[in-house]
């Protein structure tokens, strides 16, 4: 088994995780992340299980909520904890491009 991830591999996972890494950190992660990834390889040694998955050990199915309005926050509260805000809005540096999602 390889002992180190490549620089590119570290930069790729850091990108997925949205965490900036310094040159010094990259070197450490090359070893540390590889150690953890070697650990999880052990899953391939497990045999004899079936396909059924367990998402969480739920004890019952979902109870549904009645469509009834509850209390909402004052907009002042919404922005209170936000590092940057403007009027009633939470603010971020300008975002270029459209949302990936819905």
């Amino acid at each position: 088994m390889k002992e180190k991830l490549s620089r590119e591999e570290v930069l790729h996972v850091a990108e997925l995780a949205r965490i900036a890494v310094t040159e010094e950190e990259i070197e450490k992660y090359q070893v540390e992340l590889k150690k953890l990834l070697n650990d999880v390889e052990k899953i391939n040694e497990v045999k004899g299980y079936d396909d059924e998955i367990l998402i969480a050990p739920w004890s019952h199915n979902t109870d549904l909520r009645e469509d009834k309005e509850g209390e909402m926050l004052d907009p002042k509260k919404v922005i209170e904890n936000a590092p940057r805000h403007s009027g009633n809005y939470i603010q971020v540096p300008v975002v270029i491009g459209e949302s990936e999602g819905a």
Partner: peptide, 9 residues
């Protein structure tokens, strides 16, 4: 989007 910033609602 407003100039240098984006406002979230």
């Amino acid at each position: 989007h407003r100039g240098e910033k984006t406002l979230l609602d």
